[in-house]
Design a protein around this nucleic acid. Structure first.
Length: 569
RNA sequence: UGCCCGAUGGUGUAACGGUAGCACGACAGACUCUGGAUCUGUUUGUUAAGGUUCGAAUCCUUAUCGGGCAGCCA
């Protein structure tokens, strides 16, 4: 079971969603006397935050009812699956802190599945069909029109059995035969119109190698795997609602002792983001993103590289709830969980993203002193660290305005502000280049204000972050925004693709940043708060000489908000 | 125009016939050595029309809108 210290869902009673209610009812009614779940991802890509929701739901439900949960790879399509992806799922889920009572593969059951299939054939419930894929589609009919029976539908069980065994022996080429369940070609549910159970694929499987040349379809493998494992509650997403009658049909016709119950819940979708594996693949191929771990992607690796923590992801995913409603969640909700955690835990450092040079004219030439900075005002136990102060500093360029509007609380000509943890400074002179751009500020400091306050108790309106120029380390900082400008990336207008909606400002690279010395060489995945700027994590692209930081999420910025609402003019 | 599923503020989510609540966001104010955090307050909602009932977001009917299903994908 995953971390049990999760917060209760906002609003309702904990564990009151319809899935848990159903499980509780099943226990009360005696339909089941225990709870076992499984999470069945297909290892055909890298997991994303949506996978985390499903994985956590299965793990949590099992844990809450003293049951067990299996990670079971649904590896029935060898052509798309690989050990690389299996490892990715295992690693990413482990990083998320989600654990299982056992790990299995659907391919572990290929032998049992084949025996089950033989049983169905012998009972006249399945047959070998020689129709081509195109013909199968045509014979299936349409939603408003019944299908037609395959010419092979009434072949004898003995003949079907011989054919099935020859399929398995590799006597036939790909696509020549399928094994189909014999159900109802007129069913209003298309899934029941003699669905395919086995197809011939002479392909190497990442676990069974060349042992098999026929592979079970999802519907066939999935429910029977549940049954073999003793799964009581098979939680899956909404798109399988129409498959539930088929799930039940197989179980009943196999006369399984355990009739597992399939319950469908809604997918996690977040606005301005994509979740499709093929979409991500296409974006990588086009160079829109750099890989599965691009910080703009909501893959687990992307979020991790972006600076998200496992706890924040878990908190978010549990907070969005489990329903049957199609939802598109506001990404601000995800960001909230990160800020909420990092505000409590992240150490504070100072970094100037867009440096403007400041010379303290009355500060002793060549002198350096150390000032003390608390590591986290929210956590007294976090301690403090020292940082150098000198007569040459950098402050943020937009923390100065020559002719400021009334609500601007920062530095301006003739105005006094506080340098966080250091001194009060007053701007005496503005130095400009030939184009009239501000290139340097000449300021004076009040030696009595060391540490950020004075005996006279006078107030300063603004407090700025800064770094000492001679001691600063050069760094690159990458700011991120939504990958797509379009809100709903789940359903796109006809004729458009995700690439058409890429936000050109999804990544902004700042290459002239100056960071405090304590920040050099922290390439360890720890997320810091850069004072007044947001939460940042070192990116593996950086080096000790030149660190690179990703902004995971910004701080709430009421000044910027005001500016956006009423632009200066 | 077949079958299945869904619809509660801007976004999520509670209320299993009895006061429509919570979270996020937004807005306003207080406070502040981060315009952060924190605190306080405000705004906005049961898709529609009928029916059952003393009483309906909840039960029934119909409509509307949205989603899913015609892979030898999952």
């Amino acid at each position: 079971m995953a971390d049990s210290s999760h917060r209760d869902p906002p609003g309702g009673e904990p564990g009151a969603d319809f899935v848990r209610t159903a499980v509780r009812d099943d226990l009360a009614s005696g339909r089941f006397d225990r709870v076992q779940t499984r999470w069945p991802p297909e290892p055909s890509g890298y997991p994303n935050i949506g996978h985390a929701k499903a994985a956590l739901l299965n793990a949590d439900v099992a844990g809450e009812f003293d049951g067990s949960c299996t990670l079971r790879f649904d590896d029935t399509n060898p052509e798309r699956e690989s050990v690389e992806y299996v490892e990715a799922f295992r690693d990413d889920m482990a990083w998320l802190g989600i654990t299982w009572q056992q790990v299995r593969f659907a391919s572990d059951y290929f032998g049992r599945l084949f025996e089950f299939a033989e049983r169905l054939v012998q009972a006249g419930d399945a047959y070998v069909c020689s129709l081509t894929a195109d013909q199968v589609r045509e014979y299936r009919g349409a939603p408003t029109r019944p299908g037609r029976p395959s010419p092979d539908r009434d072949r004898s069980p003995d003949e079907n059995l011989q054919l099935l065994r020859r399929m398995r022996e590799g006597e036939f080429p790909d696509g020549s035969y399928t094994l189909r369940a014999r159900i109802d070609m007129a069913s209003p549910n298309l899934n029941l119109r003699d669905p395919v159970m086995y197809r011939i694929r002479h392909a190497e499987h990442h676990r069974t190698g060349g042992e098999w040349c026929i592979y079970p379809s999802y519907d066939w493998a999935h429910g029977q795997s549940d049954s073999i494992e003793g799964v009581t509650h098979s939680l899956c997403s909404l798109e399988f609602e129409n498959n539930r009658p088929l799930y039940d049909w197989f179980l009943q016709h196999l006369e399984s002792e355990l009739q597992s119950r399939q319950i469908e819940f809604n997918h996690l979708y977040i606005a301005h983001a994509t979740f499709g594996k093929r979409v991500v693949r296409a974006l990588i191929e086009k160079g829109v993103v750099r890989g599965w771990d691009d910080p703009r992607l909501l893959t687990i690796r992307g979020l991790r590289r972006r600076g998200y923590t496992a706890a924040a992801i878990r908190g978010f995913v549990r907070s969005v709830g489990v329903t049957k409603t199609r939802v598109l969640i506001d990404p601000a909700q995800l960001e909230y969980y990160l800020r909420e955690e990092l505000n409590r835990t992240a150490q504070r450092r100072m970094a100037v993203l867009d440096p403007l040079r400041v010379v303290i004219t009355n500060y002793p030439q060549g002198r350096t002193e150390q000032v003390t900075a608390e590591n986290n005002p929210e956590d007294e136990t976090a301690g403090s660290h020292e940082l150098p102060f000198s007569g040459e500093l950098y402050i943020e360029a937009d923390d100065f305005m020559e002719d400021p509007p009334r609500k601007f609380f920062r530095l301006a000509l003739g105005r006094e502000v506080r340098l966080k943890h250091a001194y009060y400074i007053t701007c005496d002179e503005v130095v400009k280049d030939t184009d009239g751009r501000v290139v340097e500020l000449r300021c004076s400091y009040d030696p009595e204000s060391r540490g950020g306050g004075t005996a006279d108790g006078r107030k300063v309106k603004g407090t700025l972050h800064w770094v000492s120029a001679p001691h600063a380390v050069d760094a690159e900082v990458r700011l991120y925004d939504h990958l797509f400008s379009r809100e709903d990336m789940v359903s796109l207008p006809e004729g458009t693709t995700a690439a058409d909606y890429v936000n050109p400002d999804s990544e902004t690279v700042l290459s002239t940043c100056k960071i405090e010395p304590a920040l050099a060489g922290v390439a360890d995945g720890t997320t810091y708060q850069f004072l007044r700027k947001g939460y940042f994590v070192a990116d593996p692209d950086g080096s000790v000489d030149r660190p690179v930081f990703n902004r995971a999420v910004g701080l709430r910025d009421s000044w910027a908000k005001q500016q956006a609402a009423a632009p200066p003019g």
